[in-house]
Structures are given as structure tokens and as C-alpha cells.
């Protein structure tokens, strides 16, 4: 009988395996005391940092961990920083929504139709290799300074991983499921809503998670250059004010926000695909 077609983007599947199971680390073995390793590694890092700060003895180059921690507490309570963070998150939200809309619909079209895949594949595979930051000057020309370039970049950063995961999600659905549905009397529409969408959903959500992570990374960078508001701009401001401890505090904060977004997406995926968990 017909062999199910080989998934074109099966690398995504192994990536999904790697990042989907947080209880396993990169070595692939179960880690029974993740907190312990976290504490030891962080303590070592802070220790080295402290030694370096004492040795260099110049707060502009190397502020101490303690002053950085104080700056972090101040930043979290600073309405100006919080508003900047909200502005940035709003951009991420809009850009991500655009990325999902375009990425998922193109992904389904390309996953469903070989012809569309063949036409669009050269296009996407060339355009997506342009480094995302290389778009910044052009987007400033197009949209001017402000929200435009940042939203464009977030959307663009997420688009391809969402699209490729959707394609691989559709391709990975076993031919047996299509045959089963058809022999139970399902038409094209029901096959799409009851087989293709749920069958590809885990992969789509993984792509969304990777895309959102990429979007968060590029938005900060875009805000250095293309706008005069937002979290990235606050970082540049801290730099020009020579507040290195605040700058590092904001870096840590951006990492924490990124981590929260990523875990949020992971929990959401787990909630949506109940059927995959034991």
C-alpha cells in the first residue's frame, strides 16, 4: 500500500523531543535533583562575579552582584521600567499574532499541497537565511522609527519556525489516520478539523514556542535602534547614563521575562494536548 510520505522537515521532530521534556536534560537522562545543580552553578557564577568585581574595583566596568541585585529590585518597582516592559510585551503580542496567522496558514497550505510547497519552498528557504537583524535598516525605511520595525521583526523572527513546524506536523501524520477517517465516512472538511489540526497541533505549538522565544530575543535588539520606547530602549538609556549595574539588572530581568514566556507556552501546550501526557 501507499507509504506515508517522508516528512520533509523531520529535524523539527527531534528538536521537539529535546525541548518538550523538561524533566530530562540535554544528556537525555532523567535529572533527579535539578534544583541542586541550579543552586551550585548559580553560586559559582556569582562567586566568580564577586571576585572579578573586587579585583577590577571599578563599578562602571564590573558592578558587584549586590549592587546589581539592588538595581534589579529598584527596576522591578520602577513604573517607568514596567511601562517600558508593557510596551515591549504589547509589540511581542501583536508581532507574534501576525506570525501565527501567516505561519500557520501558510504551513497548512504547504503541508497539504505539494505544488504550493514546491513553489514557496525556494522563497522561504532563501529569505529565512537573511539574518533577522539585517532587516532593521530596511524596516526603518519602510515603517519609520517606532512600533512598526519592532513588530515586523518579531513577526518575521517567529514566522519561519511556526511555518516549518506546521508543515512537518502535517507531514508526520500517518497515512493510516487519513484512511481510517475516510473509511468511517469523513469528508475533506472533517479530515482537516478532526485529523490534520489535532494531529499537527503538538508540532505547531512547538513551533510557536520557538518562534515566540526568537521574537523576544529580536525585539530587545530592535528596540536598541529603531524606537525611543520599550524595554530595549531602557537598556540603552541605562548604558548612556553609565548605570552598568542597572544595565545588567535589566539584562537579568529580560532573561526572567523570556523564561516566564517560554514556560507559559510550555504549560499551555501541555494543557492543550492532554492526550500526549501520561
Amino acid at each position: 500500500m501507499d507509504k506515508p510520505q517522508r516528512p520533509l522537515y523531520s529535524a523539527e521532530v527531534t528538536r521537539e523531543k529535546l525541548i518538550n521534556d523538561v524533566r530530562k536534560d540535554m544528556s537525555g537522562k532523567k535529572n533527579r535533583f535539578p534544583q541542586l545543580y541550579w543552586i551550585i552553578t548559580l553560586a559559582l557564577l556569582i562567586g566568580i562575579w564577586q571576585l572579578a568585581a573586587v579585583h577590577i574595583h571599578f563599578a562602571l566596568l564590573m558592578p558587584s552582584p549586590w549592587s546589581t541585585f539592588k538595581a534589579l529590585l529598584q527596576s522591578v518597582a520602577d513604573p517607568k521600567i514596567l511601562i517600558a516592559l508593557l510596551i515591549t510585551l504589547k509589540r511581542v503580542g501583536i508581532g507574534f499574532a501576525v506570525a501565527c496567522l501567516i505561519g500557520i496558514s501558510l504551513g497548512y497550505l504547504m503541508g497539504y499541497s505539494k505544488t504550493i510547497l514546491r513553489f514557496l519552498d525556494p522563497l522561504t528557504n532563501s529569505v529565512r537565511l537573511i539574518p533577522i537583524m539585517a532587516w532593521v535598516p530596511l524596516t526603518i525605511v519602510w515603517f519609520g522609527l517606532g512600533d512598526g520595525p519592532t513588530i515586523f521583526l518579531i513577526a518575521f523572527a517567529g514566522l519561519f519556525s511556526i511555518m516549518l513546524s506546521t508543515i512537518s506536523g502535517v507531514h508526520d501524520i500517518s497515512a493510516d489516520y487519513y484512511n481510517a477517517a475516510r473509511s468511517m465516512g469523513a469528508g475533506r472538511l472533517s479530515i482537516f478539523t478532526h485529523v490534520v489540526i489535532p494531529g499537527s497541533l503538538p508540532s505547531v505549538l512547538t513551533g510557536m514556542r520557538i518562534g515566540l522565544g526568537g521574537g523576544w530575543m529580536s525585539v530587545i535588539c530592535a528596540e536598541f535602534i529603531a524606537t525611543s520606547s520599550g524595554f530595549g530602549h531602557e537598556m540603552v538609556y541605562a548604558e548612556t547614563m553609565l548605570e552598568t549595574n542597572k544595565l545588567i539588572a535589566l539584562m537579568i530581568l529580560s532573561g526572567l521575562v523570556g523564561f516566564t514566556i517560554d514556560r507559559g507556552m510550555l504549560l499551555l501546550s501541555r494543557k492543550v494536548i492532554k492526550w500526549k501526557n501520561s
Binding site: 484512511n179 477517517a181 469528508g187
Partner: peptide
């Protein structure tokens, strides 16, 4: 066609549907 039901070697139960929804699916269709 639904006049010829098929039991697959690997069962091909839809993993995203509960037992109940799997059995109801052909009846809904």
C-alpha cells in the same frame, strides 16, 4: 467508504480523541 470498515494492524485509533470520541466519530460522520 463507510460500508467497508477497516481495522488497522496498528489500530489507528485517533490519539487525540478519547475512547468515547473515537467510537462516536464514525457515527457522527
Amino acid at each position: 467508504g463507510p460500508d467497508r470498515a477497516f481495522v488497522f494492524q496498528n489500530y489507528a485509533l485517533f490519539p487525540w480523541m478519547t475512547v468515547k470520541d473515537n467510537i462516536l466519530y464514525p457515527m457522527k460522520m
